[in-house]
Design a protein around this nucleic acid. Structure first.
Lengths: 255, 255
DNA sequence: GCATGCATTTCGTAC
DNA sequence: GTACGAAGTGCATGC
C-alpha cells in the first residue's frame, strides 16, 4: 500500500493516521483548518484558516497558506514531531534543540489527512553556480581575456577570500570577483577591498568583476574606481553521467 | 464541496482534476512518480522518483522530495501553470517572465491527485526582527547604555546604511550595528567600515555591535579593533490587536 | 519596475 | 558542532 488517505476524518482518526504516518516514516499531508504557534528564533502566531501541512520522514515540518512560495511556518529536518488530542483539537507539535524552537499546529478540523510511502533515490543535478564559473575560468582562462593565467582560488585576505587571483598578459596581478547573477554595488565594494589589500604593491593591481550582468550603479562605481567588468555567463553543463536530452522539455513549448 | 481527491487515477483523470483545480483557483496537491526539468536562472534535472507537488492559486508551483525543508524545485507566485498529456505522461509546466524560466514535472504515475478550496484571511503575526530591535532602542535608548541618545536611523554612508547613530553620555558619536541573530565577523567588519567613514572626525567615534550573541571570532575582532559588544535580545512583542495567551502553546510541553 | 538588505533564511562545506 | 558564504535564494520596502 502506498497511499493512505481519508476525507473529513474525526479527530481520533486524524490522530491515528498521523501517528501511523510518523511511525512508518511516511510523507504526511494534511489539509486542515488550524491555528499555528511558533516560538524559537522568533515568535509568531497565526489565526484560524485552511492550510496544508507537510511532515517529511526527516522531520521537516512545513505549513503552507494558499499564497506565497514560502511556507508561513516551518521547522527544519531533525525536528521531533509528535501529535496528541487536547480539548477536542489535534495538536501537531515539532520541537528541536539548537536552536531551541517549537512549532505547533492546532487542528480544529481536518478536510483531508493522508500519508504516502514513496521511493526517491535521485538527487538534483544543478548547474549555473558561481563555483561553476570558477571551474570554467581555471579550465579555460581565456574566457577572461587573452593571456590571463589564474594562480590561486579562495586566496585569503583580512577582508575575506578572493574568488580568483591571477596575472594578466603583462604580469599585473589581477583579482577576479565572481557573481553568478547580476552583480550590484556590493560586489564592486567587495572587489575594491580586495584590491586595497595590495595597495602597498608597487605594480598595478587590476580588479575585475566577472558576472553575466551588473546594475548601472555597479558599472558606474567600477568606472569611478578604475576597475573593470567582464561579462561571463555561468556554464550550464550538468554532470557527464547525467546527459539529458532537452527535446521533451522544450517540445511542448509551442505557445 | 471542499476537497476533490482520487487515488491512482489514470492519466486522463489526472489531467482533468488538475485542470479543474487550476480553473477553480484551488490549492492542488499531487503525489506522483515524476521527473523534473528546470531552466531559467540556473538549469536542473531530476530523475524519476516519488514527490509531492503543490500548486497554489497565486501561481506558486512547488515540488518536494521526501527530504529537506526546501523544495527540490519551484516556481514563484504569478507563474503561469498549464498541464497536458504527451506520450502517455502528464506534464505540468510553469512558465514565467522576468526572469524567464520554466519548470516542468513529467508525471509517469500519480498516486494521488487532489485539490482543495479553503478559506484563509489570517496573516502571520511575527516578532523578533532586527527592525524590532531598532524600534526598541529608539523607544528606550537606555537598553544600550545610560545616557545614550539615538539621533538617526539608516544614516547613509558610502559604505552603506548605518543601522542607528547616536551620541553617548559624553557626546561621542556612537555607531550601532544591529543583528537579530548571533553576529559573526562580517558584522564586525561592516561596523568597522562605518566607523572609518568618520576617521577624519576629531573626536572619538565608538562602534558598538548590538546582538543577542556573537561568535568568538567576532568578539576577538571587536576587541582588536577597539570596538564594543552589547548584548540585546530582539523584542518578541506581537501586535497589540492580536494578544495571544500562551498557555495552550506551552501547556502540552510536559516532556 | 529595479535596487537594497533582512531572514525562524536553508544548505553545503571546511575546520 | 561551529563558522562562513552562496542561493534558481524569497520577500518587503523604497525609489
Amino acid at each position: 500500500m502506498k497511499v493512505v488517505e481519508e476525507k473529513n476524518p474525526d479527530m481520533e482518526r486524524v490522530l491515528e493516521i498521523i501517528n501511523e504516518g510518523l511511525s512508518k516514516r511516511a510523507f504526511i499531508t494534511i489539509m486542515a483548518s488550524c491555528r499555528v504557534y511558533y516560538d524559537g528564533r522568533a515568535t509568531s502566531r497565526l489565526g484560524l484558516g485552511d492550510r496544508i501541512i507537510l511532515i517529511k520522514s526527516d522531520g521537516s515540518f512545513i505549513i503552507h497558506q494558499d499564497r506565497n512560495l514560502e511556507p508561513v511556518n516551518w521547522q527544519p529536518p531533525k525536528t521531533k514531531v509528535t501529535v496528541n488530542i487536547h480539548q477536542g483539537m489535534v495538536k501537531v507539535r515539532g520541537v528541536r534543540r539548537n536552536p531551541s524552537e517549537s512549532l505547533e499546529a492546532e487542528i480544529l478540523h481536518a478536510h483531508m489527512v493522508s500519508y504516502f510511502i514513496g521511493e526517491d533515490s535521485e538527487s538534483l543535478q544543478l548547474a549555473g553556480y558561481e563555483a561553476d564559473m570558477g571551474d570554467l575560468i581555471f579550465k579555460d582562462p581565456e574566457v577572461i581575456e587573452k593571456g590571463f593565467r589564474p594562480t590561486s582560488r579562495e586566496y585569503h585576505t583580512p577582508q575575506g577570500f578572493i574568488d580568483i587571483m591571477g596575472k594578466d598578459l603583462d604580469g599585473n596581478i589581477t583579482i577576479l570577483e565572481l557573481k553568478s547573477r547580476k552583480a550590484g554595488t556590493n560586489a564592486v565594494k567587495q572587489l575594491r577591498r580586495y584590491v586595497d589589500c595590495f595597495s602597498d604593491h608597487k605594480e598595478r593591481v587590476r580588479g575585475v568583476l566577472v558576472a553575466p550582468s551588473a546594475t548601472d550603479d555597479a558599472l558606474q562605481l567600477l568606472e569611478e574606481q578604475g576597475m573593470e567588468f567582464k561579462v561571463l555567463e555561468p556554464p550550464r553543463e550538468l554532470g557527464n553521467d547525467k546527459v539529458v536530452t532537452l527535446e521533451n522539455f522544450f517540445g511542448s513549448s509551442s505557445s
